[in-house]
Amino acid sequence: MPIETIRGEPFNIRIDGPTDAPVLLLSNSLGTNLSMWDPQIPEWSKAFRVVRYDSRGHGQSTAADKPYSIAMLGEDALAILDHLGIAKAHWCGLSKGGMVGQWLATHAGKRLDRVVLANTGARMGPPDLWNTRIKSVRANGMAGLVQPILERWFSQEFRERDSATIAKVSDMLSTTPPLGYANCCAAIRDMDQREPIRAITNPVLVVIGKVDPATPPAAGQLIADSIHGAQTVELDAAHLSNLEQPAAFTTAVLDFLQA
């Protein structure tokens, strides 16, 4: 699809799969874009109409310099569904995308069917960490963050083994609009969904990276323990588990969505 106007702002949206299939909406992590899901699309688009978009502040979507919140990011997703005439969809979000998924399942659960929350947290502190990052990005852009982020997002073994994926993610990080990134950092800084998510009634799968330093296993387990009936799956991966373990991630999500 071309760039679509959603609530008066541009959003980059892509759709794959049969028009009459159930809809699966994907939401990217902080610092990436919709292409982070490329390894999953060939399989998922056989069974689903897969809708993915560059989150606000990322890729080719709007990156206006104004206050963002997790609620705003959730409302963006709802507006995209409305724009496309979709009443209900499955959800899969990783990291920031999982935070948006928690908000949606809490505040608009009837618009979602099954929900996948991957490598994410309900609260991401401390605030000083985010404030330092915001200040740095606003002053110096993204360049200084790329290498430290890659070292947190992927295990050393994977970084040494798959240079092509590392290069692709490095490019996504480098080209993320600094002001959009900074405002999304502020949204994450201000988020605390630990209590609200207890009200979620959708079927939920929490994907956990066994060696994820950004959202450690305990963060994923807290989410699972807070949502009645939530399932978990642990993958031998760090933060971007869909890229470090693409086959296992693809299969685990597909099995859950088709259960």
Rank of each mutant, 00 (worst) to 15 (best):
M1P: 12
P2L: 15
G8N: 14
E9V: 10
I15N: 09
I15Y: 15
D16E: 13
D16T: 14
D20W: 15
A21F: 12
V23D: 00
L24C: 03
L25E: 01
S29M: 04
S29V: 01
L34N: 04
S35Q: 09
Q40F: 02
I41H: 15
S45N: 14
S45A: 15
S45L: 15
F48D: 01
F48Y: 11
F48I: 08
V51Y: 10
V51F: 10
R52I: 03
S55W: 00
G57P: 01
G57Y: 02
G59K: 04
A63L: 10
A64Y: 13
A64Q: 11
D65E: 08
K66A: 12
P67A: 03
A71E: 01
A71R: 02
G74M: 07
E75Q: 09
L78V: 04
L78W: 02
A87D: 15
K88Q: 15
W91A: 00
G93M: 00
L94E: 06
S95T: 03
G97E: 00
G98P: 08
G98R: 00
M99S: 03
G101P: 12
Q102F: 02
H107Y: 12
R114P: 07
V115Q: 00
V116T: 11
A118I: 03
T120H: 01
G121A: 13
R123S: 11
G125E: 10
G125W: 12
P126L: 13
P127I: 02
D128K: 14
D128W: 15
W130R: 03
N131R: 14
N131V: 14
T132A: 14
K135V: 10
S136N: 03
V137E: 02
N140W: 09
G141H: 14
M142Q: 11
L145G: 09
P148V: 02
W153A: 04
F154H: 04
Q156N: 07
E160P: 07
D162K: 04
A164L: 06
T165R: 03
K168Q: 11
K168S: 11
V169P: 00
V169K: 01
S170E: 07
S170G: 06
D171F: 10
D171Q: 09
D171Y: 13
S174M: 13
T175A: 07
T176F: 05
T176W: 06
P177S: 08
L179D: 08
A182Y: 01
C184R: 01
C185F: 05
A186W: 07
R189D: 08
D190T: 08
D190P: 07
M191L: 07
M191Y: 03
Q193W: 01
R194V: 04
E195V: 10
E195A: 11
E195I: 10
P196S: 00
A199P: 07
T201H: 12
N202S: 05
N202L: 00
P203A: 12
V206F: 10
A214V: 15
A214D: 06
A214G: 08
P216K: 05
A218G: 08
A219V: 12
A219P: 12
L222G: 04
I223D: 06
D225Y: 02
D225L: 06
I227M: 08
H228Y: 07
G229C: 08
G229N: 08
G229K: 05
T232H: 13
V233H: 10
E234K: 15
A237H: 01
A238T: 01
H239R: 09
L240E: 04
N242V: 07
P246G: 15
P246W: 12
F249W: 14
A252D: 05
L254S: 15
Q258D: 08
